[in-house]
Amino acid sequence: MSEIMHPLRMKYTREHVKKTTNCPGCGNGIIVQAILRAIDELGMDMDEFAFVSGIGCSAWIPSPLFNADTLHTTHGRPIAFATGVKLGKPELNVVVASGDGDLAAIGGNHLIHAARRNIGITVILVNNGIYAMTGGQTAPTTPRGVNTTTNPYGTLESVFDISSLVLAAGAPFVARWTTYHPRQITSSLKKAFTSRGFSFIEIISQCPVQYGKVTKSGSALDLLKHYKKDSIKIDKARTMDPESLKGKIVVGEFVNEQKPELSAEWTELKARVMEGRS
């Protein structure tokens, strides 16, 4: 019998990267496949992409795994690096994959400014609600009242609704899904990869080892069951009052519109001023 291999792994990952770094049950692996499936279904080539990530578990989604140009950067800064990559080579499809701590805490300023600028990159923000790699510290996405390593008596602060933040900052494409929605993630990513503007996809993802154990939220399956049970599509959520939305995860595509994209605007501007000069 010939050896059976996973087709996405065979086609899109570096041959010498033999294993993924994720803990058992981690949502990152679901997102890995969702990204690669979007590329596969679009018939795109990995050479059309550059993947940029920061620091934290989910920064390992593309790097070193994806067989493409990958730039593994410093904590919080991947969007700033990616902005330079995109402006330097606008024909590249530049994709950032990183976590909530990386992109919404230490890198929060770059996130909102990239949305405001409408730089044509795709940002996949994996929101596991905790600092996982360093061992269960409070993130700006950790629910109020749970116990973490750095709030052993309970967190006192409110959480960021990151998708709303990015929406308010002007991003033309914003979607939120959970790892219970891999097909929907792929569908949104296909739109993101083929649209011109700043595309933001927040993925609520299970971290059974840190979030699950530290905050006593249960196993990978417990978290996935919660995503299944408590996810509410945005269309339905809009008809519900805030009280009945408590504890729910609003998912779906929040906005999908056209706005002038920065690298294209730069190309036009350069042509205009160079023509004026000659």
Binding site: N22, P182, R183
Partner: peptide, 13 residues
């Protein structure tokens, strides 16, 4: 099973 498996460990033909 194939789509949700986080570790590329299930193939459905």
């Amino acid at each position: 099973c194939m789509i949700y498996c986080p570790d590329f460990s299930i193939v459905v033909q």
